[in-house]
């Protein structure tokens, strides 16, 4: 199934800036993403997306396409929402539309949602920009990451089902097993780690050197460890670090000052310092 799906996509989505038609470009996008629930077998919300006429008719709640106005079109609004939104489409666990597909739909609606006439596929700055992602797709490396973590006595758990949400490093089951050596060995999957829960572990400043290589890290908790200000210096490369918890560590004013200089850091805790 999957190769065929990819092949179709490849043929359906042309390079940006080309001209396209509804049957050639838009209909296949509906076909892949929507028609299962909005087609001949099911018509959720009374909506069918399996023909140009049906698309323009809309759902039981009204039209879903306002020709010339992508932002004002209910269909476009729904596919543009955050996947966590109740109204987000496609619903269920189906993947969101790709940026290329979004661009195609936006261009088609902007051009007046024509039936057989050609329209230009215009890349918009926003439409072309990919959704901000936390980390690279964990899919291909999840098995490797979880096996590696298990061998080290820690856990790497997906933050969510969205594969670019990254992995959470957990150590709470057996914090004593997590030490600097274990952190060093996580390097091959370091770019997938977005949160590191290292409270009460045996990690030291040396371990922070490894952590400093986890470029997508957003949250780091080293509560109740022996990490000092020297350890904080190793965190400087972390351009996405949002939260740093230094509660009950050996980090002194120097380390706090260092942390405060990190441009992305918004939350810093240092309760019960030295």
């Amino acid at each position: 199934m999957r190769p065929a799906f990819l092949l179709l996509l490849a043929s359906a989505v042309p390079c940006l800036g080309e001209t396209a038609t509804f049957p050639g470009l838009v209909a296949p996008i509906f076909e892949h993403n929507c028609v299962k629930c909005h087609g001949p077998t099911k018509q959720k919300a009374g909506l069918r997306l399996d023909s140009h006429a049906a698309v323009l008719v809309g759902s039981k709640d009204g039209v879903v396409i306002k020709a010339g106005d992508p932002e004002g079109s209910e269909l476009f609004r729904r596919i543009s929402l955050s996947p966590s939104d109740d109204d987000f489409m496609p619903s269920g666990d189906r993947p969101p539309l790709t940026p290329a597909e979004m661009t195609a739909l936006r261009s088609w609606i902007s051009a007046g949602a024509p039936d057989s006439a050609t329209f230009d596929v215009i890349p918009l700055e926003q439409a072309a920009a990919p959704q901000p992602t936390a980390a690279p797709d964990y899919g291909p490396r999840l098995a490797q990451a979880t096996a590696l973590a298990r061998s080290l006595g820690v856990t790497l758990a997906p933050r969510s089902r969205i594969p670019t949400d990254g992995l959470v490093l957990r150590t709470a089951s057996d914090p004593a097993r997590c030490d600097d050596a274990a952190l060093a060995r996580l390097a091959p999957v370091g770019d997938l780690i977005v949160e590191a829960e290292l409270a009460r572990t045996r990690v030291t400043d040396k371990g922070m050197q490894s952590v400093g290589g986890w470029v997508n890290l957003e949250r780091l908790d080293v509560t109740r460890t022996v990490v000092t200000s020297d350890g904080v210096t190793f965190l400087a490369p972390l351009g996405r670090l949002d939260s740093l918890n230094l509660t009950q560590t050996k980090v002194d004013d120097r380390g706090i000052a260092l942390a405060k200089r990190m441009p992305s850091l918004r939350h810093l805790w240092a309760f019960e310092g030295p």
Partner: peptide, 16 residues
Amino acid sequence: LADTSALPDRRPHFAP
């Protein structure tokens, strides 16, 4: 444990 499909999917639908 991790190899069985009998366990529920432990991943939330989106980042919690």
